[in-house]
Nucleic acid binder design. Sequence first.
DNA 1: TGATGTGAAGCGGTTCACAGCC
DNA 2: GGCTGTGAACCGCTTCACATCA
Lengths: 227, 227
Amino acid sequence: MKVEKISELTTNRLSIYLRCLNDLAAQGAKTVSSDGLAKKFHLNSAQIRKDLAYFGEFGVRGVGYYIDDLRKHLTKILGLDKKHCVGIIGAGRLGTALADYYGFAQSNFSVAALFDADQDKIGQKVGTVEIFDIKSFAETVKKYKIDVAVIAVPAEFAQDVLEQITNSGIKAVMNFAPIPLRAKGDVKIKNVDLTISLESLSYFLAKPSNKNGKILKPNAAKSRIKQ
Amino acid sequence: MKVEKISELTTNRLSIYLRCLNDLAAQGAKTVSSDGLAKKFHLNSAQIRKDLAYFGEFGVRGVGYYIDDLRKHLTKILGLDKKHCVGIIGAGRLGTALADYYGFAQSNFSVAALFDADQDKIGQKVGTVEIFDIKSFAETVKKYKIDVAVIAVPAEFAQDVLEQITNSGIKAVMNFAPIPLRAKGDVKIKNVDLTISLESLSYFLAKPSNKNGKILKPNAAKSRIKQ
DNA sequence: TGATGTGAAGCGGTTCACAGCC
DNA sequence: GGCTGTGAACCGCTTCACATCA
């Protein structure tokens, strides 16, 4: 094992490995080789070994990995053995949908509070989660020990909201507003930009190579083909 | 301009550039240099030029890019000048939230139908969008000319749903189920895995370097430090 | 023998730096 | 002079291939 920077691509894959292992465990398997895992879930075995090796020597040569053992390691590495409290800013459709998104609980996150500026919404509940006035953000964060913020407000408010979040001392943010926010200091931001994903699909549907399989010359006035 | 494979990273950035240009246009700007764009929106000017150059010579040396002109080009490249029809499978919280997600309209997508297997939901409306029986998927897709599918069902049903989608001839899919689906043939799938994003935040909060700034040795029994 | 852990090679994307053009 | 378009250098991630070990 080496002490070096772990790429986010690696940690993302750890999440996937953990799910695969849960799958296998549910089927009663006890050990699995990197090759077995790779074949079954369409991954690359060398990559699995390398990803895991960043964090320790979890495998046994000639045998593979003990599934339960590796699950425990991954759970610990990913911090999924600790509870986290989530505050969602923006009690619109998306925010309220996220408030009881079952995926949170699955990863040991629980939604403690929703926030909004709309006086009509404040005090209402979405499932068991109350909607608080955004003005009471800092104190509510302290009260509920919120350590993860979710931004679910329109783009034009996202930067201001981020400011409030970082001021309150929260270090982990998930941003759904269609504007890539940059992290300042030691704050981690995950941007989930649905607009980009959509427009990527739009590009795929529109691109010339999808029209009767022929590569068409773009019709920009000044374009030319080299080679 | 070269004829070569365009990476998805590039097309994702085109979406961002387009938004930046819309911003600038709203402020009344007429031209912008790659450097000006980069400085203002925290991008890399060489990358902007390279990304754009894949599609044509849109700039003018010594001047920069004409904003309106470039907006038109990007809109066309991304296929945002054409309407698309979306069908959402899964009329749970997430599915219904997506049904009137304003981001769709913004990118020229309109949600035509929701689908569910729950007989109690079928026939109901979410905003203006009706919930149809998943059994009538193929015919409803034809009827409404749906060309984009959104998977918003639990993980265990996602693979089956994808099967139905591809059988119906749809070529673009957005998957919100926490299981990475692979594209078959010429179908494009965008996986939006919130669980991975969450666990990435969890990792960030848990990782040793975040504890009093010290790199701690992992306490796996067999771990060791090389070098 | 069988599977891990890991240098080395390969590959794709980003950044640099500058020739070429307005 | 200013800015684009682009080959070349660079960098980081992935894959290969194999020494190593149970």
